[in-house]
């Protein structure tokens, strides 16, 4: 097997992941990016989405929300506001959150309230990512 890199996911509630992995894929500022061992030093902001990593052939996913990530010396650290594993996600709650967010988004667009729209969009994004991740977990 090729060289590995150290993955670290840190949230204000504590470290979620601290493992040696083969590859990490994350939702970056300019779209999804992948990081392998011996990557050049790199710093990017992270959007709401799904972070995937492979460890000994097994793929695992996390839902992350906004923050940033730093790559240096074969170590990749994510600093995000929250991170959840697929198994921890409550699908019903996410579904309800999606409906709520869609409704609020529609209202905000109608009233042309930019602030509310941004918030509703973020909420919708979070809900969709959660649902996506939960479904992926089921099919695997």
């Amino acid at each position: 097997m090729a060289e590995k890199l150290q993955l670290e996911v840190v949230t204000p509630k504590g470290a979620v992941v601290n493992e040696v992995v083969d590859i990490v894929t994350a939702p970056g500022y300019g779209g999804e990016f992948g990081v392998l061992a011996n990557h050049a030093p790199f710093l990017s902001t992270i959007k709401i989405g799904v972070l995937t990593y492979k460890k000994e052939g097994k793929e695992q996913s996390l839902m992350v929300s906004g923050g940033f990530c730093e790559v240096s010396n074969n170590k990749i650290s994510f600093l995000v506001e929250s991170a959840e594993r697929g198994a921890d996600i409550d699908v019903d709650r996410a579904m309800k959150a999606r409906e709520r967010a869609e409704k609020r988004l529609a209202e905000a667009v109608q009233h042309k309230d930019k602030f509310d729209r941004v918030r509703a969009e973020a909420a919708l994004h979070r809900a969709l990512s959660r649902i996506k991740l939960a479904e992926r977990g089921k099919s695997a």
Binding site: Y29, P41, F42, L43, S44, T45, G66, F68, S72
Partner: peptide, 21 residues
């Protein structure tokens, strides 16, 4: 250290995100 980093987006834009955080 920072000299060798690749930034995405630019450092300025990252700062814009980082300062509120």
């Amino acid at each position: 250290v920072s000299a060798a980093y690749i930034y995405e987006p630019s450092t300025e834009e990252i700062m814009e995100v980082l300062l509120p955080l």
